[in-house]
Design a protein around this nucleic acid. Structure first.
Lengths: 249, 249
DNA sequence: GTAATAGTGTCTATTAGACATTATCCC
DNA sequence: GGGATAATGTCTAATAGACACTATTAC
């Protein structure tokens, strides 16, 4: 049975007596390149962690929301004004996570189609898209606690892909069903059965997840039947993902 | 195509030139009382929002993690040292959300069995458990942006109940299957078919979700067969919830 | 033709939903 | 016995998994 040893803090505090923190926003920007998942990182030049790679981010200003700070950072790095998906997934405030000062960072997940704007926005040689496999295996040295933040982002995107209509936001307005399948396979790191995958998109005739455009993409350089191009239907917003992750027992 | 208008902030900033914030931790403490879900709120006496109800919370100290700050707040309010479930679910930093100063708060969800310690810890008349239905309908006036935080917490607990092994943490060590079913029904706000619910707990004979204790609880004052008491099995940790939410089409 | 990629059809095992039935207590 | 709560059994519809098959391109 606890005794009440202190007054309840935020209900009646003296506004001049509390610890002060810097608040930053870091953005994990994900995109697909040729069927594999990539994350945008920027290389540090100054200490601490000079030479290591870090998430793009910056300070929250008092007159903006966390969401708009994240949108601002995303736009500065990629030129993308409105992300198909921009969601907060965690706050990180361990003591000493930034050796310079007390910083609490709020982390966001952004998913963008692979428009060339990312390379254009990051004009300097200090920003690049890394394959997530290289990051997952620890081949890329990350600054601060960004390894943990990135790992949490991968967890989050895998969950959201099953729950929300996230998948088409990785792709351009028109896409092939193979590209869509590759999104699921890359994020979940497992292979899907193609016939079953395609059936799940059209199983319920009242819900349109993909609508044919009538157009076809060029066939691959190695030959093969040229694929049809589709557009995302409205059902992604109302019903989330029609594709479910395999229930491993 | 954006132009680089500012230096990348957190990679090489002057530690003396950034906006300063207070960082707090707020905890949404949920428990079951007689088959219905309740949330712990404390009543404010000082301005702003005097008379309104608020989430228990307090300042993060520079030498503690966000998680330990949340655990500390939970212990102060309820006397519960180790919650069955204590998870961060959001950060809130809208300008003006606290009229006194710039405050970013990190919100946690805590799930505790209905031990009497909650009432004991909150010895004053300014803390009580509210039925979540009263809060959902807006019958309880909430301070700051706590209505939004609480709504997000309800969203989060409904999701986690399906994904993680959260359900038994609402209950005491021994519980009846009816009580377990009531957890799902209260959190999801829907009724479940009892035979199907019970089957899902025992469908896979290799996974133990509930193990019989051999004991039985007293039958209800209105009569009826006295229910058997069960203990939570290890499968909750390895396989998450065996009960899935109805796929509404 | 062969290699390569795209796309369809069909069978079966598993799971989810509905609902009828039996069991054990209090009065 | 009657009312109340607990627990079990069974039928059916929907879904998930496996896999054989056809279609259209480059060479």
């Amino acid at each position: 049975m606890p005794s009440r040893t202190k007054p309840r803090a935020p209900q009646g505090y003296d506004a001049s007596r509390y610890p002060s923190f810097a608040v930053t926003v870091d953005v994990v920007i994900l995109t697909m390149i040729d069927g594999s998942l990539h994350v945008l990182l920027v290389q540090r030049h100054a200490e601490p962690y000079a030479g290591a790679w870090a998430l793009p981010g910056g300070f929250k200003q008092p007159d903006e929301t966390l969401d708009s700070a994240a949108a601002r950072e995303l736009a500065e790095e990629t030129g993308v004004r409105s992300a198909g998906h921009l969601a907060q997934f965690g706050a990180y405030g361990d003591p000493g996570r930034d050796p310079r000062t007390n910083v609490v960072t709020v982390a966001y997940l952004a998913v963008v189609p692979d428009v060339g704007a990312i390379a254009a926005g990051s004009d300097a040689a200090d920003a690049r898209l890394w394959p997530v496999d290289d990051v997952r295996t620890g081949d890329v040295e990350l600054a601060f606690d960004h390894d943990r933040i990135v790992a949490d982002a991968f967890d989050r995107v895998a969950r959201d892909l099953e729950l929300s209509g996230l998948a088409p936001t990785f792709l351009a307005e028109m896409f092939t069903l193979t590209e869509l399948q590759q999104v699921y396979e890359a994020v979940w790191d497992e292979t899907l059965d193609t016939p079953n995958f395609r059936r799940s998109l059209t199983a319920d005739p009242t819900q349109v997840f993909v609508e044919p455009t009538g157009e076809r993409a060029a066939s691959s350089p190695k030959g093969g039947r040229p694929p049809e191009l589709f557009r995302a239907g409205p059902a992604w917003h109302t019903h989330g993902s029609p594709v479910r992750r395999t229930r491993r027992r």
